[in-house]
Design a protein around this nucleic acid. Structure first.
Lengths: 333, 333
DNA sequence: CGACGTGTCGAAAACGTTATCGACAACGAT
DNA sequence: ATCGTTGTCGATAACGTTTTCGACACGTCG
């Protein structure tokens, strides 16, 4: 009489000769069960290797002690964040559940709402949304957004100083003597992409270099979406001598495209990225990039959401500093 | 009458003037509902932004279309694997749920059993266990183990050729003229750690170099656990001129320890790692290491578990090749 | 005109757990 | 003796779904 291998609380109850209710009390050590009974039940639990089903438990009671990380895809930025979150969770007693649906290309928008409705209220007590495009936290559970679509407004937020980082990257190229500097943008629906472009423009403006619209291309923070604009940029009649890509994945692809076109990096074209994911050091030459403190961002986001879950008020927004990491993909003109 | 923000199937039913059962049928488009009714329900669903709760759904029905990745901790190896899995999942229509409890130091053993009982049967249709220590897949759901505690036996498995990789690493050091080569081991309960030590021994044997037990230390694949043995190794009166660490995290810590002790890498001591996680290229100098095809391992593990879930038979074990990546942390004696 | 299929729907049970509340016994105080 | 108190336990109702099955209203066929 056990179709599935699962051992339920009912099995334990039967085997221990008590009711399901009593077993439940023992597990959550609620008041009102005799020490001997408790001992016996514990014994049976160990014997049968019973472990309560998160699903059933969370369906019934609101608290689950699980924090959800909702992410469109496990790419380098998300996974770096995950590492930071994972480090920070150890002290808290919470568990982590990173969720990613198999998204089709077209419904990459609004996924955070769907995931949230699917998991919130049941299964998770709070959520960290990574690069969400829609805000509208419908109040069901506490939510912290990392790198959200519209800067610090709406839900609590952790991000980094995108403008300053982008400015530093562009100034670095300017200081190397570059004047035709291409910009390969990020996801247009993300605030960070907008801010990085802003930093780029500011730096050019400060250096007295006019912005050539022809050198502005829009990517999408993903390698495949960076491919075409990178090609366009590097095939221009009056080719830019440097490209600032809005994130590392785009920058890495840009370097690949350059090689395909017979261009050497950094001799023929300099490339700068943004994020400083570990992969950026693996390239040949290693990528010059803007470092975001991704681990810290994850850790802070976790602390934030835990505080909110436990009813402690928090400052709504946290912005961490960025810094330029000069490696081998840039060179003086 | 909505204490939580959650909109349930009941709300939809009421709002559409039909029964819950009908709504359920519409959602899962079962046969037996009039087109007009279906249209009306769909409208209400869109209106209210309803999304069915995974928890409740999976509690009732066996299938969830979710694959679980069970991991003790999100460290570089797991997250690289996750990327590979994530890439492979897109074609399949499954969703991913990476789960990691906040494990205390002491109960790092047997976690896979507990996680499995907690999630299996409900919530996930199949699971990928990353570096599990205990086998015993109690038949509840299909399970694939990556880098398991006891090589290819028991549950289906994906791993890489640890012996050949370790031999290549050690031979590389031997070829550079090193004869006193330390070995900083991995988690003793993992087959991969045993095999990497075996490869080390084989290479030394083939080169006619006796194995000095004093140069064999046991770590645990984690930076903190590598700290002490690395110190011991590098503080030996007759210090080894090279260290082969059983994974990159240990190797990276070994380089840090060397620096603390005033030793230069690779001038005073060469260091080789294992895994080739992206972080290994970030170090100064960049780490020479054995490359495992981690992304491919993840992708293959996913395909394997999906096949098993859908009832297609699979070869039980898959072993992928390794290769040496020579970077800057090794030098001729 | 009765029998029977067909299409459409809802009532109700089930999944595994937790929470509430009443039942019951034992016991000390009045 | 009676009454309340305390300690222990179990029935039972939820939680939000899916699934089974029967009810009902039509047509259609003999």
């Amino acid at each position: 009489m056990r179709p599935t291998g699962r051992v339920t609380i009912g099995d334990v109850a039967r085997s221990a000769g008590v009711s399901v209710a009593t077993v439940s009390k023992v597990i959550n050590d609620r008041y009102g069960v005799a020490p001997e009974t408790s001992a016996r039940v514990h014994e049976v639990i160990a014997d049968l290797g019973y472990e309560s089903s998160i699903v059933a438990r969370s369906l019934r009671s609101r608290r689950t002690n699980v924090i959800g990380i909702l992410v469109a895809e496990f790419e380098p930025f998300s996974t770096e964040l995950l590492k930071g979150i994972s480090e920070a969770v150890e002290e808290t007693g919470y568990e982590l559940l990173a969720y990613s649906g198999g998204l089709r290309r077209d419904d990459r928008i609004g996924w955070e709402q769907r995931y949230l409705s699917r998991l919130a209220g049941t299964l998770i007590d709070g959520a960290i949304l990574v690069t969400p495009t829609v805000v509208a936290p419908d109040g069901s559970i506490p939510v912290v957004a990392v790198d959200p679509h519209r800067g610090p407004s709406g839900p609590p937020t952790v991000d980094s100083d995108n403008v300053a980082g982008a400015r530093a990257a562009t100034e670095h190229l300017v200081a190397l003597g570059h004047r035709r500097i291409g910009f390969l943008g990020g996801r247009p629906d993300l605030e960070s992409a907008r801010l990085r472009e802003q930093g780029y423009r500011e730096a050019l403006g400060a250096a007295g270099i006019p912005v050539d619209p022809d050198l502005l291309r829009v990517g999408g923070y993903r390698a495949d979406l960076a491919d075409l604009p990178a090609h366009e940029l590097l095939s221009l009649p009056d080719r830019p001598t440097a490209v600032f890509a809005a994130n590392d994945l785009s920058a890495i692809r840009t370097m690949e495209v350059a090689r395909e076109l017979g261009l050497r990096v950094p001799d023929d074209v300099s490339v700068v990225g943004f994020d400083n994911v570990p992969e950026s050091a693996l390239t040949d030459p290693p990528l010059t990039t803007v470092s975001q403190p991704i681990h810290r961002m994850g850790a802070e986001a976790l602390r934030m959401v835990v505080d909110l879950v436990e009813g402690r008020p928090r400052d709504a927004h946290l912005r961490l500093p960025t810094s330029l990491v000069v490696r081998g993909s840039t060179r003086a003109l």
